[in-house]
């Protein structure tokens, strides 16, 4: 049976996997940073503390995206 190829995509499905893995952390970072900015606007005197805590949270959230990278490479 002849297979007609209309479009061909070559490459690694891991790339798509990483794309999917980046969605969650992307949303998470948005919420996290947005909330921190709200907090800073409400209480500018606490900005330093908020920023430090935000980066801690960012590190946690970003970890998921980083795991996505690692997994993409690990399970090729």
């Amino acid at each position: 049976m002849d297979v007609t190829t209309l479009a061909e995509v070559t490459g690694n499905i891991g790339t798509v996997g990483y794309g999917l893995a980046a969605i969650g952390p992307g949303i998470g970072l948005g919420i996290l940073i947005g909330k921190t900015i709200e907090g800073m606007a409400r209480q500018p005197e606490a900005a330093g503390q908020l920023r430090a805590t935000m980066f801690l949270g960012v590190a946690f959230v970003e970890l998921l995206a980083l795991l996505g990278i690692v997994a993409g490479f690990l399970f090729v």
């Binding site: 590190a59 970003e62 970890l63 980083l66 990278i69 690692v70």
Partner: peptide, 11 residues
């Protein structure tokens, strides 16, 4: 903690 530090920077 250390792995995320290293990988974040490298990536």
């Amino acid at each position: 903690r250390p792995a995320s530090l290293a990988i974040r920077l490298m990536a």
